[in-house]
Every structure is written in structure tokens, then in C-alpha cells.
Nucleic acid binder design. Structure first.
Lengths: 249, 249
DNA sequence: CCAAAAGTGTTGATGCTACACCCATGA
DNA sequence: TCATGGGTGTAGCATCAACACTTTTGG
């Protein structure tokens, strides 16, 4: 009967972490942040982590993930999908992690379970500004991500697997591209993410046959070669029901 | 350096819930339990729920799920796979749920996030005894599951989707069957779970071609018709890497 | 005119779907 | 002998993989 009370107390045992993928035309990128409060603390810690935070007691988990992205990166209103829960007992036990936790968390020894989310964005829509909320946010090449803080490499691994699966079965590649794009960008995207060298002609034929692409009257500009025709994504009803039958790529 | 301290304090904000699927030869079954302490409490509550419990502070989540199944059902050493985290703010707010929580939980109003797991078992290995730890445990027909407590219908929905996906891409059907089984049981299993009527000859040809089945010299006994040859599952290295290319059924 | 990427079809092999009858057994 | 499910093959169709040359543009 009673509406949810807003307490704004943090829940010290549950956090969210977000894997945001972008694509710059040739490489897959991941959004990473330097740890919060880094400038104010007298520690030498340049560890990168996924954007994340503890949740509030009365906050929906998905909302928490959205909030984190908005606060840390200015990215709003993103389609986020859950990866899963990560709760290893030792996930916060690296030395550097403990030092940071001791400094910033009210209950640094608390056992924390985190829920991972992932999202795909067109990287050009979210240029990271080198000041303000995005001071410590960077796009990192997926293949050049080193050791992250906490268990965030595990979360990232789970995310890339999910991304590859989705790429096969759902029309999601477009989310990583601008509104209009040449087909070869999509082709490169698939090859990059899937670590493969698909046959170009077969790929183009198949991707067009899905009906999710519509040609425009626009062409690439400023390229030192024949400009390619730009295509756009056609929103169609897509049900995951036939997910398994439907090979997308 | 220091080994994990065992505190045995419960974590009142995180729980696990398990979806255990079984197959009886014609129907898909789910393991459900009546709520804990039902007999000792003066309430009229025959609500069924998934087996689950709060976790301990220093307990791995997966271990917690195993413990729950062992405690409630005697099922040990099961391969459990995570479904995901379920954390809706209203997931514990049905009237009957609140009454039960008030009676058995130290902090009944605590917001709880649950991690769902699922498992496949050969139903004959785990005959539920009508006494002892399994007093309130039943196998329920998947299609006859009514309204469960909490948000357990949501968890179950997520589980069945996962099961259907796995059935397409991985050799898991065998886990629901005895060591030796006639091919038609496997065929029925696929049709039941996928809600389909696969072509029988095509199914048999394809399933044999996967190389995961080996014929034995044994035949069905006690059936009022020609006894079918029994097959057994061949353990082979199976990597999910080619998950997406590989159509299993 | 050169470099660079765009654009474009066919063929052979493989895999898929659809389909029906006889057989072996227990009762 | 009857009822029940067991066991088996093919043909036509669709899909897939493999493969290379010409065109257009900018510089």
C-alpha cells in the first residue's frame, strides 16, 4: 500500500559496474575510469576500473547503473543489459584495491557483490570531455586493456562474450555506429569484435538480406578514395523468440 | 595473506534461488518447495517458491546455492549456472510474502537482491522422499506452475529461456536423462522443452551426427512394444567458443 | 595516372526439409 | 493378431563458402 520510502542510505554490500563498448571505425573501445577521488587522496594509484558504484538501499539496480554512467560520464538514457552477478570472496582483495577502499569507503572491509551491466554506444555521441564530470574517463582500446582494479577483468570478459553472442543473433552492431555509415564500417566492426575475417561479399549480401539496412542518398565525404554509400538502420520489430534460429550476421 | 575468516553471519541483503529442472520422460519438471518453517508457524500459506536462502557474509554465492539445494533437497554436487541478479524493489512485497518474512526473518523489511541459478538433473537420481529434509519439496510440472512467492515466476521465466538456448547450442539434454536412454526420450525432451514438433527422422540423424551419442547393446525392458536401443552420452571436449556456429539439435 | 577502396555474380558443395512404410515386440 | 512405437532413405530445395576483376574517386 505504502509507496517506497526514499532513504538514500547506501547499501554497502551491493554495487553495479558498467561495461560500455564503443567503436571508433577500426577498434573496439571500452569506457574506463580512474578511481574516484584520486586527486584528493595522497596515493599513487592510476589503476583503471569500470564505471561503478555502490547502490542505494531503495534504488533499482538498473537505475543505479544508469546513475553511475550519468554521474561519471554524462552518458544518459542508455540501453543497459545485465551481465550477471559477481561475488567472489576475493574480488576486492588486491593490495591497491584495499588501500583505495580503506580511504573512500565507510565500511571498507564489507563484502560486496556487484552486478555487471553492459551497453553499446556510438562513440561519437559521447565524446569524453577532458574536464568536468568526465575528468578521469577514457576510451581504452579493448585489446590494450591491462589489469583493471577489483575483478573488473572478469566482468569485462563476460561482457565481450555477451557482445559476441549478441552480434551473431541480434541487430546490435548499429548501436556502435553513427546514424549513417558505410557498409564497410559495419563489416570492420564485425571482424574486429568477432576476431575473424569474414568474406566481404558474403557478409554484405547477408547483412542486406536481413532487411535491417536501408540505403540513403548520402555518401562518404573527405575520403581519399571512392566515397561509399551511407546506409541507415531500419527499426523493425525484432523478437528474441526466434533468436536461436536467426543468424544475424 | 590472511585466510578468509569464517563468521557465519548472514548477509541480510543478498540471497540465492535455484531453478532445478528435471524430466520424467514426458514432462518438464521444476523443483519447488513450500516455505520454510511452514509447520511451525500459525499461518495458512501453501505458496510454493524456488529453493533459496540468504547467503552468509563469507560464503561464495555459488556455494550458497549448492548449500541451499543440499539442505532443502539432499541434492549435492550439482552443476549450477548463474541466471542473473533479480533486484526489483517490489520483489518481496506481496502480502503473503511479507507475512512470512515478518515471521522468519530478523530484518523482514530489508531490501534483498537475489541471484538466480539453474541446474539440470536426471529426475530419477533425486527421488524426493516424503520425509526428512525433503518434506516440503515437490517436482511440479513446468506447465502447471502457478503463482509462486516473491518474484520467483520471473526467475523461472529467465531460467526456461536459458534452458531453451542451451538446448540449441550445447549438449545438455542428456543431463535430464538417465545414463542410458532410448533416442525417443531425447526426442520427446527436445519437443517438450522447445514446444515444437521436430521431424523425428531429421532429429535422430542430426543428433547422432553430433557424435555425442554412442549406442549400447542394451534395450528397453518392460515396454509393451518393440524395445528401443539404449544410447549413452559421450563426454567430449566441448568449448562454448564455437557456441554460435554450432547448432546442436 | 596512381592508389585505395567500392561495388558486384557465379558455381559447386553442403545441409536442410519434407515425407511413408515395414518391422519387432509384448500382450 | 493386433497395437504400439522402432527403425530406416531419398529427392528437391535452399543456403553457404569460395573466389577476382572492374569502377570510381581524390590526390
Amino acid at each position: 500500500m505504502e509507496a517506497t520510502k526514499k532513504t538514500n542510505n547506501i547499501n554497502p554490500t551491493v554495487s553495479v559496474d558498467c561495461v560500455v563498448f564503443g567503436f571508433d571505425g577500426s577498434d573496439l573501445k571500452v569506457l574506463l575510469v580512474q578511481r574516484d577521488l584520486r586527486d584528493n587522496l595522497d596515493i599513487d594509484d592510476d589503476t583503471l576500473v569500470l564505471p561503478g558504484d555502490l547502490i542505494f538501499e531503495d534504488e533499482d539496480i538498473l537505475d543505479a547503473a544508469s546513475r553511475v554512467l550519468l554521474d561519471l560520464t554524462g552518458i544518459d538514457n542508455l540501453f543497459l543489459e545485465q551481465i550477471g552477478a559477481f561475488g567472489n570472496l576475493d574480488r576486492l582483495s588486491k593490495d591497491k584495491d584495499k588501500i583505495w577502499l580503506d580511504l573512500v569507503r565507510p565500511t571498507p572491509d564489507s563484502r560486496v557483490i556487484t552486478i555487471g551491466y553492459f551497453a553499446l554506444v556510438n562513440i561519437k555521441n559521447y565524446t569524453i570531455k577532458p574536464a568536468g564530470f568526465a575528468k578521469h574517463v577514457i576510451w581504452k582500446d579493448f585489446n590494450e586493456v591491462g589489469e583493471l582494479g577489483f575483478d573488473h577483468n572478469d566482468i569485462l570478459s563476460a561482457a565481450i562474450i555477451k557482445l559476441r553472442n549478441k552480434l551473431y543473433h541480434e541487430p546490435v552492431g548499429f548501436k556502435l555506429l553513427p546514424n549513417q555509415f558505410p557498409l564497410n564500417h559495419l563489416y570492420t566492426l564485425y571482424n574486429t569484435i568477432l576476431n575473424s575475417k569474414l568474406d566481404r561479399r558474403n557478409f554484405l549480401r547477408r547483412i542486406l538480406k536481413t532487411g535491417f539496412l536501408k540505403e540513403t542518398d548520402n555518401f562518404q565525404e573527405g575520403v581519399p578514395h571512392k566515397p561509399a554509400r551511407l546506409y541507415t538502420f531500419v527499426e523493425k520489430k525484432f523478437t528474441n523468440d526466434n533468436n536461436q534460429k536467426f543468424k544475424f550476421y
